[in-house]
């Protein structure tokens, strides 16, 4: 089994907010965004559009763990940025997903 990084465990107990949280981190990886921009970006990346309840449930969890940080408001919209801890957690989770995908593909190739 692929070895789990401790940073990767940051997103473990997010429950149903796990996928939205991961996609938010990916969305913020190329720069700060507010909720509206995140929703659009995630729709482009993953073809899924999260409702505001789900989006902000995930944002609150990420913020409470220090994985993202709220910046000063642009009119009524507060952009969020990835923190150093968030970047580490995202790298670890993506590496873990890649490792699992490689194992899956290898097994399919030999099946």
């Amino acid at each position: 089994m692929a070895k789990r990084d401790t940073q990767d465990a940051e997103l473990d107990d997010f429950g149903r907010f796990g996928e939205p949280a991961l996609l938010i981190l990916i969305s913020l990886a190329d720069g700060p965004k507010h909720g509206y921009a995140m929703t659009d970006d995630i729709a482009d990346i993953a073809e899924v559009r999260f409702g505001p309840g789900t989006l902000y449930g995930a944002i609150a969890r990420l913020e409470s763990r220090g994985l993202i940080q709220r910046l000063d408001a642009e009119d009524r919209r507060n952009p969020y940025r990835l923190t150093a801890l968030g970047e580490k957690a995202l790298r670890a989770r993506l590496a873990s997903i890649q490792a699992i995908a490689r194992i899956g593909q290898r097994r399919l190739a030999t099946a």
């Binding site: 909720g35 505001p52 902000y56 609150a60 009524r76 919209r77």
Partner: peptide, 12 residues
């Protein structure tokens, strides 16, 4: 989060 959510909701 209220103002941000209201903004997002208003466009949906």
């Amino acid at each position: 989060y209220g103002a941000e959510m209201a903004d997002l909701v208003a466009t949906a």
